[in-house]
Design a binder for these strands. Sequence first.
DNA 1: TATGAATGAGAATTCATTCAT
DNA 2: TATGAATGAATTCTCATTCAT
Lengths: 187, 187, 187, 187
Amino acid sequence: MDKREQILASALTLFVEFGFHGTPTSKIAKEAGVSNGTLFHYFATKEELIKELYIAIKNDLNTYLFSHISPDDSIEVTLKKLFIYFIYWALDNREKNHYIQQVLFSPHISQIPEAILQEQSHQAIQLIEKAKAEKIIKDLPTDLHYTLVNSHIMGIYSYVSNLPPDEQKTIIEHSFEMLWDMLTESK
Amino acid sequence: MDKREQILASALTLFVEFGFHGTPTSKIAKEAGVSNGTLFHYFATKEELIKELYIAIKNDLNTYLFSHISPDDSIEVTLKKLFIYFIYWALDNREKNHYIQQVLFSPHISQIPEAILQEQSHQAIQLIEKAKAEKIIKDLPTDLHYTLVNSHIMGIYSYVSNLPPDEQKTIIEHSFEMLWDMLTESK
Amino acid sequence: MDKREQILASALTLFVEFGFHGTPTSKIAKEAGVSNGTLFHYFATKEELIKELYIAIKNDLNTYLFSHISPDDSIEVTLKKLFIYFIYWALDNREKNHYIQQVLFSPHISQIPEAILQEQSHQAIQLIEKAKAEKIIKDLPTDLHYTLVNSHIMGIYSYVSNLPPDEQKTIIEHSFEMLWDMLTESK
Amino acid sequence: MDKREQILASALTLFVEFGFHGTPTSKIAKEAGVSNGTLFHYFATKEELIKELYIAIKNDLNTYLFSHISPDDSIEVTLKKLFIYFIYWALDNREKNHYIQQVLFSPHISQIPEAILQEQSHQAIQLIEKAKAEKIIKDLPTDLHYTLVNSHIMGIYSYVSNLPPDEQKTIIEHSFEMLWDMLTESK
DNA sequence: TATGAATGAGAATTCATTCAT
DNA sequence: TATGAATGAATTCTCATTCAT
């Protein structure tokens, strides 16, 4: 792992544990085993570091998600995969997931380029529109569908994250069905 | 409004706009029209101010919520009222709602007494247990129900908060039904 | 002397001896017997301190100069007084005079408000124009007269500043006559 | 132009525009199109670079001046040539002239070897002594003569540097006569 | 109660300089 | 010769907090 990645790794751990304000750049540098100056050699400002870390994590997540989705999958399967694999990723990368939330709920979001922010939502929204067009899901505003799926995912994640691994799978599968029932025309 | 309240009011606005780190106590004092020292006369530390503000807002929310619930209400009605009135309160008190989220997603939560944090959840959890006992809702873990309700509420809030007021009511009512369908044995 | 003035006094001595870059604000504070923070309580930035010190010194010089000039003085007398008293002031306030030159030859001039910079030059220029109108001095561009007077003054100052006090007076008086001969229609 | 000269050229431009403190060595290197390390390969320290640049410019000026003076010239002609050609050089090499002033008014002069500093003054002082011995100029202290000539030159330069080229020549010639009148026994 | 000057620890950042390649 | 990553001391500035009035 080169120095830049060392710095990102240390920043992730410390930011998640102590928050942005609670983590001086000097602590990150020390933790990464590099000098104070080196950190600023790679990242012009602390803000820049926060942003780059966000982007790196988002790339990580995207790579993971896309590696599991195939263009041949049906809409339902695609949605289910996105749902399930996102939760698995979050469970396997708690710090990274936490970090993303942390940025989203902070004044630092404004630094993140729109394109990065919309990477997944764009995909998901197209999926929802297609599902609506094909009458698979209810005829409600796309944004409403999107919001409901999102908050459902975050809810399930926060619930299963405290469960032993063997119970997680059942809940995740089941909860997707609950969500699906909610989105599709109820009988 | 006395000085203590002036300070709390200014702190709310500034914290929500600029974040905790981005808001020096001196700015709060100036905005409140009091001296630097006076702020520390009422609140021993900045941390204390953050905590007291949280408590004050939580009291505000509780007062509002309880004023709409009657012990005679059925379980479903109670839940619906909690759902709907919380959203209305959040829409009418955006800064306050935002502030609560901000604290929840920050290292400052650890400063908030458990009792304050659980004020509503305690109520809600009892409600859910009663509903489960009476077979009104599915036989799933109480925490799962609770989590799903919560995230649903936050999702709906974030969706309707960008809508014109006249469209809000329909969505809120409708979305409660979706939630209810999800919690109760389907069909 | 209050703290603000202590800071200005220490800044003057240190800036003249070590230059702007060679004088950390921390050294100024220590020399002034105040804390690091106090310096920034009175002067928002180091730049601001540099500027305020310049203004304070210019006020000092103006007060001195004006206290010696009377509206009844003839043009020649007024010019002579400005010439002579400026040199005396510079000799009695070497650090201050040096500081003014230092600012003038540095990128910090751009921070000094035009009005402050022109305080004396404005006066002097009007004097020269009057002298030209009354045919007392040669009919050359006002700016040229002004420039020549100025550089002559600085030259004389730099020469006499290394002389013992008793020799200074003669040179100063004599050199004014040389200047006067140069400005007026020769022979 | 080899790398060493590239560096000197970039340093000149940047130092004049932004000052010594305002010009990091890294900026100089980038502007010169060389790496950070290369600059320090040619100049051991930034201070050294400042000094070497001064020396290079002084050599430039001397070469120019000497190429116009002949041992056969009379004292008056020699002085006039020094006067006039210095001003022309300064007008044609504004950055270089500015740089010399900048060093002279900075704490960096102490780094410049005496020999370099006195290159011209030595010549000029001998000239003045000769003129005094031959009763061509007034019997005043040599240093006073020297100082007055110097400040006169700088004054004229600063005046004509803002003039269109065609007006410069007249002023320069004329101003030398004014100076000469001042130095020689009047009337 | 209220003030606001004073404090000083701490933080982000800069930059001359080194050195392995 | 030339590079540019790496260093870390130094610097400016911020801000929560104290305290005499």
